[in-house]
């Protein structure tokens, strides 16, 4: 598809840019340590550069949040006795003063909420970062090691292609995630489905129209309630990390009326990990019943169907059967 060609990474000249940047950073560090380096001028310029640059809203220090809490707690909600003593105010004026004070209090509480949310985001990001680092340290054959690509995933998905659009609500936005996003979105669109895709696999520099590069969970968190008619996930169980099922199901239940999950090669993962490790307590739900149980928790029910070979399954859940 011509419109999908939005560039590929790399370049005709295979220069090792990372290495060059590394050399330059080392060189810069060496200069900073040199006697006579203009630290004062550097600091002033650094300040100027920083003040005319995006200010990461997330980097609100925790002590600022504490200050906001104290500020909000100390906020006065009564009219000042001094101002009341000076002049006799009309009922309307008193109401206006109160309104202003409550508006100020409201703004303080709102800022507190936002600041707390930012701080919480920092914590979550840090935890996710640490989880990734821990995962990277696990031996490749460990139960929670990084997920390799399942064997012949596209071949398994092909079996479900004919019924991919079946049961999807007409006229509503449909999110597709995981395997072959460009291709599947194009296929769904030919079936008249208003589809777009999100993927965190592969190069971020090979997008097509309406293919977003983001983690599925992050993307769903940015979607308003009930904004999607359906979400179709293919190859998902295999690619999930333990512990991510519950938040994913919660988000799916919030944003979508229907969820379709196509598990492409559960058998392969079961062989690889063993049935218990593979499907324990929502860790990596290779079994459709585990999914159904999880969705039951967000008031979604549905059914699962295996392909004739019994090697892959398709699960459809919705708020109504």
């Amino acid at each position: 598809m011509a419109t999908n060609d939005n560039g590929t990474p790399g370049s005709p000249d295979q220069m090792d840019l990372d290495r060059l940047i590394g050399e330059l950073e080392t060189e810069a560090a060496r200069r900073r340590a040199e006697p006579g380096y203009p630290h004062d001028a550097d600091a002033r310029l650094h300040f100027e550069l920083a003040r005319r640059a995006p200010n990461a809203a997330r980097s609100i220090p925790l002590h600022d949040v504490v200050a906001l809490v104290e500020d909000a707690a100390a906020a006065q909600t009564e009219p000042s006795p001094r101002s009341g003593a000076r002049v006799k105010r009309s009922r309307r004026a008193v109401i206006e003063v109160l309104r202003q004070r409550f508006a100020q209090l409201d703004a303080r509480v709102a800022s507190l909420g936002l600041a707390a949310a930012h701080a919480l985001h920092d914590v979550i990001d840090r935890i996710e970062d640490l989880e990734q680092r821990v995962r990277a340290l696990e031996p490749p054959d460990g139960p929670i090691g990084p997920s390799p690509v399942p064997l012949e995933d596209s071949a398994a998905l092909t079996q479900w292609r004919a019924v991919l659009a079946e049961g999807l609500p007409a006229g509503e936005r449909v999110l597709y995630a995981q395997s072959d996003p460009d291709e599947i979105v194009a296929h769904l669109r030919t079936e008249g489905v208003d589809a777009y895709a999100v993927t965190d696999a592969g190069s971020p520099y090979r997008p097509g129209p309406d293919v977003r590069f983001a983690s599925l969970l992050d993307h769903l968190r940015a979607v308003p309630d009930r904004a999607l008619g359906a979400v179709v996930l293919a190859g998902l169980p295999e690619a999930m990390s333990p512990g991510s099922v519950a938040p994913l199901v919660a988000e799916l239940g919030r944003v979508a009326g229907t969820v379709v999950i196509i598990s492409e090669a559960p058998w392969w993962w079961r062989l690889r990990l063993g049935a218990v490790n593979a499907d324990l307590a929502l860790g990596r739900p290779l079994d459709p019943d585990t999914w159904l149980h999880a969705f039951h928790g967000v008031a979604m029910v549905g059914t699962a169907q295996y392909d004739p070979s019994g090697r892959s399954y398709r699960l459809v859940v919705g708020t109504t059967v």
């Binding site: 370049s11 000249d13 060059l20 810069a28 380096y37 203009p38 310029l45 650094h46």
Partner: peptide, 22 residues
């Protein structure tokens, strides 16, 4: 710059000097 491999960047003066020199 990253997508193309066609440019360099600076964060502060020391970077700027190293990049310009090079």
């Amino acid at each position: 710059c990253v997508r193309s491999g066609g440019g360099l960047s600076f964060f502060d003066y020391a970077d700027f000097e190293a990049v310009s020199d090079r």
